[in-house]
């Protein structure tokens, strides 16, 4: 797996209103376009990249525990998750953060270097 590619898509979704809206409305469609763009040019870009099957599933399913366990950067993960769940989908942060905590806690502190 590539922690870099996971970090990249999380930061991109969190970074601007349009990607956040697009991803939150249709995670699978967004990820499909993300991966397709990466095949269309040899030039690296911060708005495209390849994902493994495991990474793709965790991103589309919004499986924060799985992403955390893979070594996604925790700072980017919590901001990506909060953007999607609270900013875009309207969850209450105070209660949602405890759901997030329950998902990541079993995994302790996995390494997050890229």
């Amino acid at each position: 797996m590539s922690r870099y590619e996971v970090n990249k898509i999380m930061a991109y979704v969190d970074g601007d209103p349009e990607p956040l809206e697009q991803f939150s409305a249709d995670p699978a469609g967004f990820v499909d376009a993300w991966e397709r763009r990466a095949t269309e040019t040899h030039v690296p870009s911060l708005d495209a990249g390849p994902l493994t099957d495991e990474e793709r599933k965790a991103i589309i399913d919004l499986d924060y525990g799985a992403l955390y366990a893979m070594g996604a950067h925790p700072y980017l993960l919590i901001h990506f998750a909060r953007a999607v769940e609270c900013d875009a989908r309207g969850a209450n942060f105070a209660t949602w953060k405890e759901e997030y905590r329950a998902q990541v806690t079993p995994h302790g502190y996995p390494p997050f270097f890229t």
């Binding site: 925790p74 700072y75 980017l76 953060k97 905590r101 990541v104 806690t105 502190y109």
Partner: peptide, 9 residues
């Protein structure tokens, strides 16, 4: 300070 991990918030 912990962010994104079990000890945040």
């Amino acid at each position: 300070t912990d962010l994104g991990g079990p000890k945040q918030f």
